[in-house]
């Protein structure tokens, strides 16, 4: 479980997040939704410690991240898996080396065991026969899957995904969503997902927060979101012809 308490964040005087508080639950897919530029990525980067917050705190199962000593911070980081918007694969390493990277850095496993672990997670994300390929040779969907594989290689307790299915066709997008949701249940992770894709919201939105102009606007789940009377959220949810038809 991750508790976000009263977070404020600004860049050069521009207030991006204002007093955001929420709880991301364990074993669930927790969605952060909102328009482009509303502050989703900034919120996620505050959670994983890439941005220092101006005020407020993020608590990982009782551990307040900003107050931890450097060593504890490091060990908490090892419990996090992060999927960046662009994948952020190391482009000088092959698929296999990318996935093995955290194992090389942080474990003393013998090579065979690491190899086995790599093959397991690659199989888990449905990527076979791509071990020796380099990131430049992968399609968008494959890149995302390798990035997921790398993120879960260390069996994280917390998984963060920034727009895991943006730029993918609807079918592949759905597969990625299912994959993340299955992994979450399987490993009982606390998963946080940024998205503005309504398909994902309706499919895997176990808990949902709606961020608008840097403020927490609404909390709920995928059932409640279709029945909300919050005007801004309605505008967001029923922005497309498809969702308007669902409503009717």
């Amino acid at each position: 479980m991750i508790e976000v308490k009263n977070i404020f964040k600004s860049f050069d005087g521009q207030q991006v997040l204002t007093d955001v508080s929420t709880v991301f639950e364990e074993g669930k897919t927790n969605l952060i939704i909102g328009q482009s530029g509303s502050g989703k990525t900034v919120l996620m980067k505050c959670c994983i410690g890439l941005f220092n917050v101006d005020e407020g705190e993020v608590i990982f199962d009782g551990r307040c991240f900003s107050e931890l000593k450097e060593k504890k911070k490091k060990s908490t980081r090892k419990e996090m898996g992060v999927l960046f918007q662009g994948g952020a694969l190391f482009d000088s390493y092959s698929v296999e080396e990318n996935v093995m990277f955290p194992l090389n850095m942080f474990t003393k496993m013998p090579f065979e065991e690491k190899q086995e672990r790599v093959n397991d997670v690659l199989k888990r994300v449905n990527l076979i026969n791509a071990n020796k390929k380099f990131p430049a040779e992968l399609s968008g969907g494959m890149t995302k899957r390798v990035a997921i594989a790398r993120a879960i290689a260390m069996n994280p307790k917390y998984l963060f995904c920034d727009e895991p299915n943006s730029g993918l066709d609807p079918k592949t997008a759905e597969l990625i969503d299912e994959l993340i949701s299955d992994l979450t249940a399987e490993y009982n992770m606390t998963t946080v997902i940024n998205t503005h894709d309504m398909n994902s919201v309706l499919q895997i939105g176990q808990t949902i927060i709606f961020v608008n102009k840097g403020k927490l606007w609404w909390k709920g789940n995928k059932k409640e979101i279709l029945e909300t009377d919050n005007p801004e959220l309605n505008e967001f949810v029923f922005a497309t012809e498809l969702t308007r038809r669902i409503k009717r």
Binding site: K45, L50, K73, K74, V82, F84, A88, D91, M105
Partner: peptide, 17 residues
Amino acid sequence: GTMRVTEQIDALKVMGI
């Protein structure tokens, strides 16, 4: 620089490196 703009450096950092 390329690693920075493609978030590879951020990826290293969040891994605890």
